[in-house]
């Protein structure tokens, strides 16, 4: 007996990133989760792409604003509050 709610590999792959981004409805999300539990190739793909997205975040967020920029903004805004900067 096949589950009427079951989705195939193609449908799962179509929603790969929406699934990983948490952008799907709970119903569709659980359909995909069920498919991944049964399908090793799709599980491998989803796992790879999830690692990729975590890798992107980890490699791109170290860079911060220079300290002097924060100081300059605060000085401009709050040293002379009667004259907000016009830039």
């Amino acid at each position: 007996m096949s589950d009427p709610d079951a989705i195939d590999c193609h449908a799962a792959a179509d929603q790969l990133y929406e699934y990983l981004d948490g952008e799907l409805s709970p119903t569709v999300e659980s359909q995909i989760r069920a498919h991944l539990a049964d399908c090793a190739p799709c599980f491998g793909l989803f796992d790879f792409e999830e690692t990729y997205l975590r890798f992107l975040e980890a490699r791109t967020r170290a860079q911060g604003a220079p300290a002097h920029l924060r100081r300059r903004i605060l000085d401009e805004l709050f040293q002379h509050p009667e004259q907000p900067p016009r830039s």
């Binding site: 791109t60 967020r61 860079q63 911060g64 604003a65 220079p66 920029l69 924060r70 903004i73 605060l74 805004l77 709050f78 509050p81 907000p84």
Partner: peptide, 20 residues
């Protein structure tokens, strides 16, 4: 205008993201 504390807490906390 927002006070300094409010602006730092709500907006300036995102300066790294804005700069990046």
């Amino acid at each position: 205008s927002p006070d300094r504390e409010g602006f730092e807490r709500e907006a300036l906390v995102h300066l790294d993201a804005v700069y990046r």
